[in-house]
Write a protein that binds this DNA or RNA. Structure first.
Length: 531
RNA sequence: GCGGGUGUAGCUCAGUGGUAGAGCGUCACGUUGCCAACGUGAAUGUCGACGGUUCGAAUCCGUUCACCCGCUCCA
């Protein structure tokens, strides 16, 4: 992976944002080659999804329209969607080690996934619940010291155990509840703070539960008050739902139909990691496909399979691409009752042997439209009226939601091909459609009229394709540079060109060469670049 | 947020208290006859940042930032 990051930087695919100031965690810039690659990806998506989508499950053409919404919207959108409120999870921070834990999951985590809690339980006699003070003391000074250094019982065993003793002897019906005993051993100063909850990691005390949102906040207007607080969108989907009625009213679409959007979204991730894979600012390519609930299964399967095929078609054809159906219990709240959710995943070098998500295909039911219908007060006006069926209903939604940056990263990882036999030691095997530069135009040597012919060809081609002209240094060096940029073809003008009007085509992947007429170069490229 | 690692030219790295270096790359000129050839020359550094110790710091100490690995988190 480090080699890929190094090549991205060296050749100008991806730079760290604001690098000259030391960078900023979770933000990345695309360089001259990277912007072409990402643009190719997004344009291919738009072409294949909005302008000319594959036929639907019945063979009929799909109806798709585009949309481009703002990043900042009325904050009520995020209340309706649940991003403000239920998803602003109450989090508690450990005062000792700084660890964050979800308040509502604390006791589950302690019981199921906590080293010191597990170990401490062994010290209680099974069944009886009796408190064995010397035994707990021994635990506190031995094991406990290592795995729960900040637990009150470990820091100050005598005092803590004396509190525990008063609790137990004061009750007739000991054994007492496990949870309460644990809170006692986590509490050092009973009178001042009451019983404490322990940190699953170190045993230290947790502070108050506070809502913790992944959304970036800003203010629309000059004053920085709660009145004008706004959020940077954490997903593009809600802009589509909020405009559902506008699109239906203005574009004559009929169910089933889809609305597509490409755009930036922002999430204040706790830990941005793995190059651009988890960034705080990223770009999504989302479709909300509106259907009647009776057809959810059919459309879900259609989108899952056609989206998978699409990623294959742009070069992620190997075993590194996989389709994973979610288990019921990992589904998002809105998708529990739906036809299913699946991820299209790619085996990135940093996730291997596991996979990382490229695109999620989810049946969101009618959750979002219902939420907006209720919160906006528009209620039934957000329903769709089906003239043929004479039925008014909230459409269900199949949502294929892809990450553009993750897609570009997968393309980079997939293309990266070490090859010790060639001068560059590595080449980027992009699908020609995705390649940032489609062709290099080179005079074999920089004299004898070759540069003039090459330059003429270059000027003809550059109007249609991103191509590069290079006459400097020897031909091998120029080929090597094109290998690292992932340019699939190089056209070289040599002595023979001047005699018979043919050029050599050098193929990136095979290193083989063929001769074609100089007048056929444009047609050659057009054919190779076709979807 | 925790633990471990890294940070010197575009890249790979050397330099362990005393004048900041090498190779590769980049650029210019010459040469060139199909895969980073050769010759000559040139540009390029707040030694990640801030502070401290010292006559003197890339080097020692503290803090901080960024990246990598492992936790945690990822609706």
């Amino acid at each position: 992976m480090e080699a890929i990051v190094a090549l991205c930087r060296r050749r100008g695919f991806i730079f760290q944002s604001s690098e000259i100031y030391g960078g900023i965690n979770g933000f990345w810039d695309y360089g001259p080659l990277g912007v072409e690659l990402k643009r190719n990806l997004k344009e291919a998506w738009w072409q294949d999804v909005v302008r000319c989508p594959a036929p639907g499950p019945t063979g009929d053409p799909l109806e798709m329209v585009g949309l481009d919404c703002t990043i900042i919207m009325n904050p009520k959108v995020w209340v309706a969607s649940g991003h403000v409120g239920t998803f602003a999870d109450p989090m508690r921070k450990c005062k000792r080690c700084g660890h964050f834990v979800r308040a509502d999951h604390l006791w589950d985590i302690l019981a199921q996934d906590c080293r010191w809690f597990d170990s401490l339980l062994q010290e209680f006699t099974p069944g009886s619940g009796e408190i064995d003070t010397p035994r707990l003391m021994k635990w506190a000074r031995g094991k406990g010291k290592k795995i729960a250094p900040n637990l009150a019982l470990v820091r100050n065993p005598e005092v803590t155990l004396s509190w525990l003793a008063t609790r137990v002897t004061g009750q007739d019906d000991a054994p007492s509840e496990l949870q309460e005993i644990v809170r006692y051993v986590a509490t050092e100063q009973l009178q001042r703070d009451g019983l404490q909850d322990p940190c699953p990691l170190c045993g230290g005390e947790l502070d108050e539960a506070r809502p913790f949102t992944l959304m970036f906040e800003s203010h629309a207007g000059l004053s920085q008050s709660d009145d004008n607080k706004v959020y940077l969108r954490p997903e593009t989907a809600q802009g589509i739902f909020a405009n559902f009625r506008n699109v239906v009213d203005t574009s004559r679409v009929k169910i089933p139909f889809g609305i597509a959007q490409v755009g930036k979204a922002f999430r204040n991730e706790v830990t941005p990691r793995n190059f651009t894979f988890r960034s705080r600012e990223f770009e999504q390519m989302e479709i909300e496909f509106f259907i009647h609930s009776d057809e959810a299964d059919t459309w879900y399967r259609y989108w899952r399979d056609s989206r998978f095929a699409w990623w294959q078609s742009i070069g992620l054809a190997g075993e590194n691409l996989t389709l994973r159906e979610h288990d019921r219990d990992e589904l998002a709240h809105y998708a529990k009752e739906g036809a299913g959710t699946s991820d299209i995943e790619y085996r990135f070098p940093f996730t291997a042997p596991g996979f990382g998500e490229l695109e999620g295909v989810a049946h969101r039911t009618d959750y979002d439209l219902r939420q907006h219908a209720e919160h906006s007060g528009l209620r039934d006006k957000l329903k769709y009226f089906d003239q043929q069926k004479n039925e008014k209903y909230f459409p269900h939604v199949i949502e294929p939601s892809a990450g553009a940056d993750r897609g570009a990263l997968a393309l980079l990882c997939e293309a990266y091909t070490p090859d010790e036999s060639r001068p560059s030691k590595v080449y980027m095997k992009f699908h020609p459609r995705m390649a940032p530069i489609k062709a290099g135009i080179f005079p074999l040597v920089n004299k004898d009229g070759m540069p003039e012919v090459a330059s003429k060809l270059y000027n003809e081609l550059r109007g249609q394709y991103p191509v590069q002209f290079d006459a400097k240094q020897n031909i091998g060096k120029r080929y090597a540079r094109m290998d690292e940029a992932g340019t699939p073809y190089c056209f070289t003008i040599d002595g023979q060109t001047l005699e018979d009007q043919t050029v050599t085509v050098r193929h990136r992947d095979t290193l083989s060469q063929e001769r074609i007429g100089i007048d056929r170069v444009a047609a050659f490229l057009a054919e190779k670049l076709r979807g």
